[in-house]
């Protein structure tokens, strides 16, 4: 049996809102030690989502035996809208379930809402992601990165990320012209999350589809910082930390064959 209780329904709502425009169907893998993990690839096979909600994400978590919950995220999203952000949210599934029970509890009133979501058999490929040695790692405020991704998408289909030891530069070239934003590393002692950290072994210059970056930055609601790991001619990793665990996006770059 699975029973996972979130202190705030908003956490799961934000997570699902961050991924449901990229993937529609996915398997939630549940286990006592790892909590709930998800790996899903978008239809174009350009973007991969790796979610890890450790047991620490939950106020209470038990999972007596490993189970897989096949979920339609659009349907799950509809149910999650029914609860309030501050409600307790509990996911309950029996062994070999054909449905997932979702329970909202208002913390102040005696109100309990229960929903049952039909589960699906989802046949999905699982990709093996080796630990990559990265050429660069950037940690910056997620709001700043989100603004760049959203603004530059109006100018170009692609966003170039150029990292040197001194700076990270985001650049877009479109029909109307071009633009760039440069960030230099800095440490904000009063607001550490406002700091910009650049670790570089080798400079990189990579180009990504603006559409995918726009999907990725939907997760900015989950964490005030984002870590971007880049390697020449390889997929980039965009990571948002959860209270315990992470939401990662692997995005394949664009380049000449």
């Amino acid at each position: 049996m699975l029973e996972g209780k979130f202190d705030q329904a908003s956490l799961l709502k934000k997570i699902i809102d961050s991924i449901r425009d990229s993937v529609k169907l996915c398997n939630f893998n549940c286990s006592q030690n790892d909590g709930i993990t998800v790996q899903a690839i978008d239809d174009s096979r350009v973007l991969l989502i790796a979610l890890k909600m450790d047991p620490g994400c939950f106020q209470e978590f038990r999972c007596d035996r490993d189970m897989v919950l096949g979920l339609d995220l659009e349907s799950l999203g509809k149910i999650l809208k029914q609860g309030n952000n501050e409600d307790y949210l509990t996911l309950i599934a029996e062994d070999n379930p054909d449905s997932l029970l979702i329970v909202f509890e208002d913390k102040k009133k005696d109100r309990i809402s229960e929903f049952s979501l039909k589960l699906m058999d989802i046949d999905s490929d699982v990709l093996t992601i080796d630990d990559m040695d990265n050429d660069c790692s950037i940690t910056m405020p997620s709001a700043d990165f989100s603004k760049i991704a959203r603004d530059f998408k109006t100018m170009s289909e692609s966003l170039q990320i150029i990292v040197t030891k001194e700076s990270v530069k985001f650049k877009a070239e479109g029909q109307i012209g071009s633009g760039s934003v440069i960030f230099k590393p800095h440490t904000d002692l009063d607001n550490p999350d406002e700091s910009i950290k650049i670790d570089m072994n080798q400079p990189v210059n990579l180009t990504f589809g603006a559409k995918y970056l726009n999907d990725i930055v939907k997760a900015s609601t989950l964490s005030s910082t984002i870590t971007i790991k880049l390697t020449d001619k390889a997929p980039a990793l965009f990571e948002f930390k959860l209270p315990s665990g992470y939401l990662r996006y692997y995005l394949a770059p664009k380049f000449e064959d």
Binding site: R45, L48, V126, L127, T128, T207, A252, K254, E256
Partner: peptide
């Protein structure tokens, strides 16, 4: 510039 897919970099299990 052409968009690469992840299959090119990661192996399917």
């Amino acid at each position: 510039m052409s968009q690469q897919t992840l299959s090119r970099f990661f192996t399917v299990r």
